[in-house]
């Protein structure tokens, strides 16, 4: 994928103070032709806001975003169509709690992509096996561990055969062991050629999986580089961020 962002602005009205908060401030970012882009940076710097725009969930106040030269739609109808071609996984609460893991996987296939139920079951059978979730398919989210929930959520995004995935801190609500099982799954996606944009605080994993790392801070993107360059760069904000993260 080739991501090109120019002059991206996102402002939100703060209902309490009545003022406008500028979360993204004329952000520019142009990647090479890559498979995996990882967004890192301090909390509140605009990573998640950017990812929501990329995933077609929010419309930016100004600016343009294009994947492979194709600009994102700005109208709700166009955005629904766009969201159907990509997959998005949030930090938590992805799954619908009134449905079993299997029903969660089937819902988009049947109601969004028009598959017959039998066809949809056939489609999810092999991936459930591959990611070790087949024996949990009948359970509701409340009966799954945090790691299992996130893996089912990733699978749900994956089985509709999206052009790319957007992952917003998929492990930050998990303990270290479960973080490992989810990162392993994302690592496997990388190995099998799935394109994705990932927001994460796991610097070691970012270094391993990213083709390019974008540093998002103060509503802009002061650094975009390959992992090797990024983790040895001298941009002051990046240096202080990495020092802070490594101390934790």
């Amino acid at each position: 994928m080739n991501l090109a962002i120019h002059g991206l602005v996102q402002r939100f009205a703060d209902p309490r103070s009545g003022t406008q908060a500028t979360v993204l401030d004329r952000l520019d970012l142009v990647t090479g032709d890559i498979q995996a882009l990882v967004l890192v940076g301090p909390s509140g710097g605009g990573k998640s806001t950017l990812l929501r725009i990329l995933a077609g969930l929010d419309v930016p106040t100004a600016g343009t975003v294009a994947f492979d030269g194709e600009p994102l739609p700005r109208d709700e109808k166009g955005l629904i169509g766009y969201r159907r071609t990509v997959g998005t996984v949030f930090q938590a609460y992805n799954l619908f709690p009134h449905l079993t893991a299997m029903q969660n996987l089937l819902l988009p296939l049947v109601h969004v992509h028009g598959l017959a139920e039998a066809e949809a079951r056939e489609r999810v059978r092999e991936p459930l096996e591959r990611f070790g979730l087949a024996s949990h398919a009948h359970k509701r989210p409340a009966e799954l561990s945090g790691g299992q929930k996130q893996r089912v959520a990733i699978l749900r995004a994956l089985v509709v055969r999206p052009r790319r995935l957007f992952l917003d801190e998929p492990t930050s609500a998990l303990d270290p062991e479960m973080t490992g099982e989810v990162l392993d799954m994302i690592g496997e996606l990388k190995a099998t050629g799935t394109q994705f944009v990932l927001v994460t605080h796991e610097m070691g994993f970012a270094r391993r999986v990213a083709d390019e790392v974008a540093f998002i801070a103060d509503g802009g993107c002061p650094a975009l580089a390959t992992p090797a360059e990024f983790f040895s760069c001298h941009e002051p904000r990046v240096v202080s961020f990495l020092e802070r993260v490594q101390r934790e």
Partner: peptide, 27 residues
């Protein structure tokens, strides 16, 4: 019903009406 559920429903490509009927209302 938490807002995250509506985000998830939109993210998988449901329309507003489908999100209400299939996700929000049953819960």
């Amino acid at each position: 019903i938490p807002k995250a559920q509506i985000d998830s429903a939109r993210a998988v490509g449901l329309t507003r009406w489908q999100a209400f009927r299939l996700v929000v209302l049953p819960q």
